[in-house]
Design a protein around this nucleic acid. Structure first.
Length: 294
DNA sequence: TACCGACCGAGGGCAATTGT
DNA sequence: ACAATTGCCCTCGGTCGGTA
């Protein structure tokens, strides 16, 4: 009786388990890596540092493994390893042909490169560019919107218009985070934004009342300002609108940069873009220009 | 009873952000 | 400009209570 060997799925999960490095600083690991092998394009440590990355990478990896087993009858992970490069290339080409988003293709390749410990896996397949012009998120009306009635959520929506917070940031906002100094300046403090960063968010001039309305309730400092956020609210679209309004406020003689074609330094107010970038919680002009004001 | 608004939860994805 | 990683949108298939 032959011993029952473990399934290729089980073996894949175990391999992922061994790549977990929760709690270890990715930044430090990278600095060490760079000291050893000099400057490299790639910034991977070969490990997974967050649960989110694990779940996303696992999803893509298992899909690939199942496909290989189904299509090529590969039952052992060792057999998959030896043909990984050509199979991943085939897999990616199929997805390109299916018209999957460049963002998705990119994630799939990153996941499999980490899984197979090969930073150049499927190098011969060139992925389509991620182009700003093709981004649709928070740009158009979608079917989803019919499940949401703006009229019923006015205080929240006006607050979002005034501050442009991310969903996670509004969710975690406490009354203690909003304050008003004696000269009337309102401060909205984000204790832990994306990447764990802290910042003070400027209220969009002219929209102060929307923020004051929220704190006049006289709630306890440690209570959440918005204990419940409707699931079908596109919070990001308000963040985008806030960014655009703030830009126009700081660059009153300008219109929004043109939506098509390549921008040149004279096409926008650099200082105003920088201010918007800081308000949003990252100090990069390119992110604002790519995702918010065009 | 039919319909509507609101919401849930999971899966399939795409977008945002950080970094080089 | 390119690559890795993380955040969260959107769809789908429902439930549920109110009300026309």
């Amino acid at each position: 009786m032959a011993t029952h060997s473990k399934s290729i799925i089980k073996a894949s999960l175990e391999r992922l388990d061994h790549k977990m490095a929760i709690g270890q600083s990715r930044r430090e690991a990278k600095e060490t890596l760079r000291a050893q092998q000099g400057k490299v394009w790639s910034v991977s440590t070969g490990m997974i540092h967050s649960f989110k990355t694990r779940s996303v990478y696992q999803e893509h990896t298992l899909k690939f493994v199942s496909w290989a087993r189904r299509t090529y009858q590969i039952k052992q992970l060792e057999d998959l390893d030896t043909q990984a490069n050509e199979l991943v290339a085939t897999w990616l080409r199929e997805h390109i042909a299916e018209g999957k988003s460049p963002y998705t293709l990119q994630v799939e390749r990153s996941a499999l490169r980490l899984f197979f410990d090969n930073r150049t896996l499927a190098q011969e397949v060139s992925l389509p560019r991620r182009s700003r012009a093709n981004i649709t998120r928070s740009r158009l009306a979608v079917a989803h919107d019919r499940h949401f009635q703006p009229a019923n959520w006015q205080p929240l929506l006006q607050f979002l218009s005034a501050t442009g917070l991310r969903r996670q940031e509004v969710q975690m906002l406490h009354f203690r985070d909003i304050s008003q100094t004696h000269d009337g300046t309102i401060s909205v403090h984000v204790a832990s934004g994306k990447g764990g960063k802290t910042r003070e968010v400027p209220v969009l001039p002219g929209h102060e009342q929307a923020v004051l309305a929220v704190i006049q309730e006289g709630k306890e400092a440690d209570a959440l300002v918005f204990p419940h956020l409707p699931k079908h609210l596109d919070i990001h679209s308000y963040r985008r609108a806030y960014a655009q309004a703030l830009y126009l406020h700081h660059a009153p003689r300008r219109t929004l940069p043109k939506a098509t074609g390549r921008l040149h330094p004279g096409d926008y107010d650099r200082q105003a873009i920088l201010l918007v970038s800081q308000a949003l919680g990252h100090n990069r002009l390119d992110v604002v220009l790519r995702h918010y004001v065009r």
